[in-house]
Amino acid sequence: MTTLTTDPPRNGLSPLERAYARLGVVLITPTILVFLLVIVYPLLAALYLSVFQIYTPTLQGGFVGADNYIELLTGKAFWSSLRVTIVWTVGTLTLQIVAGVGIALLLHQNIWFRSLARSLVLFPYFLSTVVAVLVWKWLFNDLYGALNQGLMQLGIIDMPLDWLGSMPNAMIGVILVGAWKYFPFVVIAVLARLQTIPENLYEAARIDGAGPIARFWDVTLPQLRSILTVIILLRAIWDFKEFDLLYLLTGGGPVTSTQTLSLLVYQEAFGLNQMGQAAAYSVGMMLVMLVFMVLYIRQTKEKA
């Protein structure tokens, strides 16, 4: 019988365990490098830039200390954009959830066009934002738009409405397009959860005397609660920082009435060429979003 000579265990780890640990380090290194490069570095760079006054095209400028943050706190731009962002997020998210849950419930029924509808419902989500916005811009067009045409034929309005050029129409418009674009995400997540609710629960509720509405409140909704919390938090984060849809549809206008924080940062950095001030705004925006992020992390931790 041969005797294996082994190193005395260091840190209580056997040689095999240490070999595994080394392999683990090797395997996560690429991820950590990418993470440092695309998340940590830009974050630190933004913090750094935010204490300078910088002219974007040359990236030259001087140190100004907290001036950019004082402008953020005392000026109107940040707060007005924050208010717009909140209106947009709450509005479009509410519509996404209501429409998403409603359509998921519908698609969960045994209806003959179910499989076709399930694929079609994803269409807006998969469509490129640029294409979607171009189509919607035509629909909203005050001179040739199908929307005004339809509303006038139905007799709901008797003059064409200026959809994207006046308030509150522009805000209603972006909220509607946002809801249309992103409700499929809610449908998919809710539908997946609906399919896991045991049929027995509904049968038990029917025997216990619960009608369709009671079954929704007492069986379906409690089962959807956890997934809805996650969806709402995720969609809130994504809607809060939405850029392309708003930028392409209204560009923040009329004037600044649909200028969310993302658009404000962009405008400051590349419209007004004030990279330092833009960095300060983006840091402010990040702090607001931190609230959602903390809630989301808490929620997902609770489940785990």
Partner: peptide, 29 residues
């Protein structure tokens, strides 16, 4: 309808309402 037949059923999987307490489950019918 099942609720009007004056019957009660016990399922193999029990089919208890997971978000309700024992008391609320029993009280539900």
């Amino acid at each position: 309808a099942p609720g009007k037949r004056d019957i009660a059923m016990v399922f193999q999987s029990y089919a208890l309402y997971p978000h309700m307490t024992v008391g609320e489950n029993i009280a539900y019918p």
